[in-house]
């Protein structure tokens, strides 16, 4: 976890450097606006940005929830069944060879301009990291526990649910932490390809109208939302599985 005073210090330094570059190089507003201009736009356009941020947040949260659930289920299926492993695993790896970015136009075509094409993008982008992290952890149960369970006459199903799954939850948690950072990327790509709402849409729109300060304001909000999501997921994971 990033320590707050340090993070704040680094952010302040970054902002100062930003202002220095803009002032010293004399950059025009439509190339790189200074932090003051961006923060004042952030304030004056707060309602507009909040409206779009809410849409993006919903897309990210729904995508994260669905992707995590699907990844959880897939990893358990893979761990439980050697047949599923031999059939599904090559497909999973192959699916990673296809850039998710390239799928965005197709998803927009199939699912439309609304919420679901962005949810699908977020879901696709986090599905593999979650599945992979959880599956690896499921296959790495300490052998001593498994032998103890066998001596106790446990069935494979109970060994899976009562030992392998709980023992692998820290692995699932590290998958979720990655997912919290990746899911917003998926949603934004989805919005760039085709949307009428959301921070990604707002950024494109602002860019097209040379309102670079608004674009930066939206970018900052997106970054802050991602950090908050990561911190929230991290806190939940710690509380549930690493306390």
């Amino acid at each position: 976890m990033i320590r707050v005073p340090h993070a704040a210090g680094v952010a302040l330094l970054g902002i100062l450097a930003w202002q220095a570059i803009v002032t010293l190089a004399g950059l025009p507003r439509f190339i790189l606006p200074g932090p003051l201009a961006v923060f004042s736009t952030l304030w004056t356009s707060r309602n507009l940005i909040a409206e779009h941020a809410l849409i993006t947040a919903i897309e990210v949260l729904v995508g994260l929830g669905l992707g995590a659930a699907l990844g959880f289920a897939t990893a358990i299926l893979l761990a439980a069944s050697p047949l599923a492993r031999s059939l599904l695993r090559p497909m999973l790896v192959f699916s990673q060879a296809v850039p998710v970015f390239a799928l965005a136009p197709i998803l927009t075509l199939w699912l439309g301009y609304g919420l679901w094409s962005k949810v699908a993008m977020a879901l696709l982008i986090i599905y593999f990291p979650v599945t992979s992290a959880f599956f690896d952890a499921l296959m790495r149960t300490p052998p001593g526990w498994l032998e103890l369970a066998r001596i106790m006459n446990a069935t494979p199903a109970r060994i899976l649910m009562r030992i392998r799954v709980p023992a692998a939850m820290p692995g699932f948690a590290s998958g979720l932490r990655l997912a919290a950072v990746y899911a917003p990327i998926g949603a934004i790509i989805g919005e760039w390809v085709g949307a009428s709402q959301g921070l990604g849409y707002l950024m494109l729109l602002a860019n097209g109208r040379a309102k670079i300060d608004l674009m930066f304001a939206a970018l900052i909000v997106l970054a802050v939302l991602t950090l908050l999501l990561h911190a929230a997921v991290d806190a939940i994971c710690r509380r549930l599985w690493e306390g």
């Binding site: 106790m152 006459n153 109970r158 030992i163």
Partner: peptide
């Protein structure tokens, strides 16, 4: 009680 848990 692990044994009982694992045997249901």
């Amino acid at each position: 009680m692990l044994g009982a848990r694992l045997r249901g």
